[in-house]
Each structure stands twice: as structure tokens, then as C-alpha cells.
Design a protein around this nucleic acid. Sequence first.
DNA 1: GCGGCGTGGATTGTCAACAATTTGGTCAGC
DNA 2: GCTGACCAAATTGTTGACAATCCACGCCGC
Lengths: 223, 223
Amino acid sequence: MTKLPSRPATASDVTSRLREAITRGRLTPNERLIEADLAGQYRVNRAHIRTALAMLDQEGLVVRERNRGARVRAISDAEALEIAGTRLVIETMVARQAAERIDAAARKALRAVEADMRAAVAAEDYGRFSECNAALHREIQGIAGNATATRILDTLKSHLVRLQYRVILLPGRPQSSLAEHRAVIDAICKGDGAAAEKAMRRHMESFTRLLAQAIDAVRHGGI
Amino acid sequence: MTKLPSRPATASDVTSRLREAITRGRLTPNERLIEADLAGQYRVNRAHIRTALAMLDQEGLVVRERNRGARVRAISDAEALEIAGTRLVIETMVARQAAERIDAAARKALRAVEADMRAAVAAEDYGRFSECNAALHREIQGIAGNATATRILDTLKSHLVRLQYRVILLPGRPQSSLAEHRAVIDAICKGDGAAAEKAMRRHMESFTRLLAQAIDAVRHGGI
DNA sequence: GCGGCGTGGATTGTCAACAATTTGGTCAGC
DNA sequence: GCTGACCAAATTGTTGACAATCCACGCCGC
């Protein structure tokens, strides 16, 4: 997994590991993050934990209250929709930029991801589908080459990962998602910025709509 | 200015002050940020400086290299345009949301800022105009009530403040900017989301275009 | 009972000393 | 004069100890 030479873990290593623990749900919303415990767990000094928590606070994954410690930040339903909406407009912009900068190698890469994705849907392997999904968006971001947008999207997504499974698991969603993704890929490969923008907006709108439905269902249907 | 009871400065105080020093240009791009110096300057322990630097790093205002210290991050011309472009799409979304949620009190507040702005232009007081500009966008964000977007916009703007003066000082810009702002305000007050979106996009596009020109001019014209 | 009031344990905040690393300069040798 | 090794100063990284704070619990008086 991580490097074996076992260079003493640094603060940003700890930050990554904590971030992952939070986004993967190993640390649950509102869970207290006790510096001494975490320090013991990750075999690092408390100071590292402290700066990691400060960074994750800045990132919005953690809230800290003076003298009262840090907790995993719970995002409300309303906030989840805000995040999805913001993500929508940025992904849309990125799709256009990707279309404007596409080249042969990038086309090939996109088609490869598409094939993977299609296979995952055919195999009904939704975990893999989810990974392909993430890979595709990452690939598009890479093509667009917009570091600012990429950074923002990364933090926005980190807030959504826990929720997105609800959407992916909706009946018929993988199929419709695949079709939407294909439209995005086609437009980008054609180098048609306007079409890519439109296709990505449609894709993200349907994601956002389904997310809203999933949230509503949960709210009204218990658990 | 700050509270007189003089509660011992905390890490996030230091963060704000450092942030301001960077955005206001008191600390220049690539300038080294030496922990001990800053600690002395702000009358604070080095540990506070350390966490402040970690947060500003996460925020993108500072870069840190292991064992080599922190410097004010210099943003390239290309990156400035990335930031402006990203800001554009988010501000556009926010304008639409503001139009959808406007109420009587908010209308009044918007009109007040508009009057201020007009007065500033008439008086050719460009510092004040710049402040009004910021106030207007803040007001719109407040009406939209989108905390996620607001947070992102704040950090994006913090990267642009140093550059925006170049745009504001262009001949005729205050007047055209005022007109664009009026269109945005009118649309929002009418509650017309689509029009607000369009007006804001036009405004931000012209800002971005002028920023690009200003950058080009600097690049080719010396200094 | 029950509401205020310490009190102790757990946890975070603060600090200073020490270790490790980088950097720039000096000097010997070629 | 140039190269490289080495040394010293400056700076960051790490650690542990101690202070301040919060919180839950039990106690006392009513």
C-alpha cells in the first residue's frame, strides 16, 4: 500500500488518511475526533493531528470549536444539494474546456473508460461502475487542464461520496447514467464545446435531481 | 479595530491577518514566510503561525515545501484566468438563486448598494467603487443563501483582489461596470432567474475579458 | 426530589527546548 | 580559477511538559 521505507509520516499524510477515513465513512458525521486517540492510532505526534485537523477544517470536512475539540462535519440535506448544484456548474465548465483541448491520446483514454464503464454496467458490478464514473470525471478534468476547477471539484466530491451510492443504486440509474456519459464523451471527442457543456449539464442535472429524490425518500420513508 | 479586551490571539485570528496581508499585497508573491519572524510580528507562538500556514496552504494562498519553509503563492497569468472563469460560473449560479429568493428587504438593500455605487462613479472615487462592487456581490450571495458557493467565491476572490484594480482602473470601466451591475440588480429584483443569470454572465464575462487584456498588456508592455 | 455548586477527569491550548535539515560561504586541492 | 568537501548559521520539524478549559457527576441545601 504505502511506501515501505516507512519514512516517518508527515502532517499531510495524516491529513490524507483522515480525509479518506471521513469520506469513506469510517469516521461518521458528528463523531468526535480526539487528538490523543488519533495520534496513537496513526502513530504520530499530536501536533501532526492538530495541523491535519486544521486543514480539514479549512476544507470543510471537520468542524472545530475552541476548547471543545473537533468533530466530523455533518452536512445537511440542503447543503448536499448546494454542493451538488455548485459541482454541476463547475463540471459543466470543465466539460466545455475539455472539448476545446481534446487530442488523440485523450480521445483514446476517454473511450477506454467508456468501455470499462459499459462492461461494469453489463456485469452489474456497481462498485466498479462507481469507480469508472469517478475515473471518467477525473479524466475529463485532466483534459481540461484547469487546476483551479479540479481542486474545487475534489473537495466538493469529497462531501458527496457518502451520498452518491444512494443515487447509483436507484433502479435503472446505471443504464441512464451510462447513456448520459456517452453523450458527454461523444461531444468532448468531437471537440464540440457547446454540446459537451449541454451534455454534462444534463448529466449533472439528472444526478442532482435523483440525489434530491433520494434525500426526500430517506427523509419521509424512515432512516 | 479589533476587540480591546485583547483576548490572546488564536490561530484563526492569525490566519485571517495573514490572509489579509497576502491579499492586500503587504506580503508579495514568492516572499518567504519565516515562522519565527511572523511569530514575533504577531506576538504569537510559533505553533499558531504553523497552523495558520497550514490552513493558508490548504486555501492555496501559500505553498510549503518540507524543511524549506513557506512562501506566498504566486499565481500565474493562466491561473488567474482559470480562477476568473470558475468564479464566473459560480457567480452566475448565485445570481439566479438570488433572483429566485429575493424579498422586499433584499430589494431595498440591493437598491441601496446601487445608489452608493452610482454615487461613487459620479465622484470618480474608484476605491469606494471597488468596495461597493464587493459589497454588491456579497449582498447577492447573501440573498442566494448558498453557503457552499459563498465559501468558494471568497477564496477565489482572495486570489483576484490584487489583480482587479488593473481592471477597475481601465478607462470607462467604472461606467460600463455600473451599467452591467444595474442589469443584474434589475433582473434579480424582478425575480427573473434566467435574466439574472444572463446579466451576471455578461458582467463576469466582460470582467474576465478585461482581466485577460490587462494581463496581456502587462506581459507585452513592460512591468 | 431538585436545582445550584463544586470537583475531578478528560481533553485541548500553549509553550519552550531540542533535533534535523537546508543553505550559503570558506577553504584546500587540483 | 574552478571544484568539491566541509562547516556554521538560519530555519523548520518534533517532542514533551504544563496550563487552561470543559463536562459530567455527585453532593448539599432547600
